[in-house]
């Protein structure tokens, strides 16, 4: 059994790619392992949830930073909160199959890029460009209202466009410095002590 999708490279050439079930699972594992190393656990918690039928991986990503939420599909007044959680589901066939991202329908992110049903607008899935990492990054930046990732032309919830732009204009968004969310750079390992003694310098030529 294999999964197939079209891949368009940077030159615009499209080729069809097939991957086996094993390769799909390996890609999922690689991306998950990379994902958990990127963010600072003090601010971003990535939690595996039990995958249900049809799901390959179910993650809950919590950002512990100021954010805003709405409570139902008629709610238009963002309310402040100190953390926000989004969920990502990857399906068998990843990374050729797109992932699904959403918030709890009764506590969803107030953002022009989140549908009133709680579904997150994560843009078009581009094979071998989009991944668990790119989706998680978009969601995490969305949760701190970082305008760098906000698509104001999204159809998800245009009523919040002005509110979001006003927050950016007041300097309130992003709610924390985005750099804080990333894991501190790992220092390079200490240089080993030389085990071989350097021979004495050659005598200088007399001038």
């Amino acid at each position: 059994m294999s999964y197939t999708a079209n891949y368009t490279d940077e030159h615009g050439n499209t080729t069809t790619v097939s991957i086996s079930e094993e390769e799909s699972r390996e890609a999922l594992r690689n991306d998950y392992e990379a994902l958990i190393k990127i963010y600072n656990p003090r601010y971003v918690r990535i939690e595996r949830k039990r995958a249900q039928e049809g799901e390959a991986l179910h993650l809950a990503i919590t950002v512990k930073a100021p954010s805003h939420y709405l409570i139902d599909n008629n709610d238009k007044t963002p309310k402040a909160c100190q953390s926000m959680t989004a969920e990502i589901i990857a399906f068998p066939g990843y990374p050729l199959m797109s992932v699904r991202a959403f918030y709890a329908p009764d506590h969803y992110l107030a953002s022009p890029n989140v549908f009133r049903s709680g579904g997150a607008c994560i843009d078009r899935w581009v094979v071998f460009t989009s991944s668990l990492l790119t989706v998680a990054e978009k969601l995490i930046m969305d949760m701190i209202h970082n305008p760098v990732v906000t698509r104001y032309d999204s159809m998800a919830n245009p009523t919040l466009e002005e509110w979001h732009k006003a927050g950016v204009a007041r300097g309130e968004f992003p709610t924390i410095r985005p750099q804080l969310l990333y894991a501190p750079a790992v220092p390079l390992p200490e240089r080993r002590q030389r085990t071989v003694k350097t021979p004495p310098p050659l005598p200088r030529r007399r001038t």
Binding site: M1, E21, R25, R29, R48, A51, E55, A56, L57, H58
Partner: peptide, 24 residues
């Protein structure tokens, strides 16, 4: 059709690669 049946055998998700089996 080839009907694919997935057994998770207690796997938490697809990251538990060794547990998952597929039968057609």
């Amino acid at each position: 059709a080839h009907i694919r049946v997935i057994q998770r055998n207690g796997a938490f998700d697809f990251l538990d690669m060794d547990r998952i089996t597929t039968t057609v």
